[in-house]
Design a protein around this nucleic acid. Structure first.
Length: 289
DNA sequence: GCAGGTTAAAGCGTCATTCA
DNA sequence: TGAATGACGCTTTAACCTGC
């Protein structure tokens, strides 16, 4: 499935939301504008062409139109068509990705007390997909209702509703990953969390999960964006950061607690993943809240 | 506390086999 | 026919040793 990957921050900003019931024989007019246009079809069918690509958006489906691309209705529905829609702005422009290539369980960088900028994440939206429309219906109705009687009292709720819709859409894409890949990867994550303080062993992992390690590793990379060994490193360094902040333990002891018995290797790995050494991290963190 | 050199282990591309 | 799984061999890297 084709998806749109939008970098955050900043979060997308809602511009306008609406609910429309089109009589049969209605076609969308031709338009090119600088907004994203999210269209949910509740009933009927919407025939929409964007940048030369025709889409047939049926009941319960969603289509996300991109800014700067010409779109128009290439055919009348032939039946009454009920749609919810909203426009939003966001920059920079979304990247088109395949849902099979999205590393859903990547360990994202966590913020620290020293950061002055939020860490970078991404948001995934399906380009054109079937939805469980009941999940979205009440959110869309409330969004349209608030949009029509906009007051200061509800100005933040409008943005919250939009984010909830984005969150449901992203989750719907995530759920479509091959079940076997997901199952093996989830088992591997449980195994790694359980054994992160022990030396990593592919052979042991292979025995515990009852799959060839090469296969586990490839599924895992598809699911998390990294290899099992790399994932363990991230788990260990996140634990080390917490211990550096919370305790005055020497590096050797922290290394021991997170499963890295060689303090030299611990320091090098810490620097590689965080950009600073453990001691600098601890000292610079003092005095911050 | 940190970094260079070394080596065993893991990663990865590719091909083969099996199965639905 | 394509997806799932396993095997092989070369490449890369994690982890250890040593020294500053």
């Amino acid at each position: 499935m084709k998806c749109l990957e939008l970098p955050i921050p900043a979060l997308p900003q809602l511009v306008m939301a609406g609910h429309t019931v089109w009589p049969p024989e209605t076609k969308h007019f031709e338009r090119r504008f600088d907004l994203y246009d999210v269209v949910f079809v509740k009933s009927g069918t919407l025939y929409m062409t964007e940048d030369g690509v025709p889409y047939e958006v049926r009941s319960g489906e969603v289509l996300v139109l991109e800014p700067g691309l010409m779109h128009y209705g290439h055919k009348a529905s032939g039946e009454q068509t009920e749609i919810f829609w909203f426009h939003f702005v966001h920059s920079p422009r979304a990247r088109v990705v395949d849902n099979r290539d999205i590393p859903w369980k990547t360990v994202l960088q966590q913020g620290t007390s020293l950061d002055v900028k939020p860490p970078s994440h991404v948001m995934i939206l399906p380009k054109h997909a079937q939805t469980d429309f009941k999940l979205y219906e009440s959110l869309l109705e409330r969004l349209v209702e608030l949009q029509q009687l906009l007051t200061l009292e509800h100005s933040l709720e409008i943005h919250l509703l939009t984010i909830q819709i984005f969150s449901l859409l992203q989750y719907s894409v995530c759920r479509q990953l091959a079940p076997q890949t997901r199952a093996i990867s989830e088992k591997a994550i449980d195994y790694l969390k359980l054994t992160m303080r022990e030396p990593f062993s592919a052979k042991h992992m292979e025995r515990e999960l009852h799959f060839d390690y090469d296969y586990i590793s490839r599924c895992f990379k598809k699911y998390t964006g990294m290899t099992p060994a790399k994932y363990v490193q991230h788990l260990r360094i996140e634990e080390a950061k917490a211990l550096l902040h919370r305790t005055d333990l020497p590096l050797a002891d922290i290394g021991e607690r997170i499963g890295i018995r060689d303090v030299n290797y611990f320091v090098r790995l810490f620097k590689e993943l965080t950009g600073t050494t453990p001691i600098r991290y601890r000292v610079s963190g003092r005095g911050y809240v």
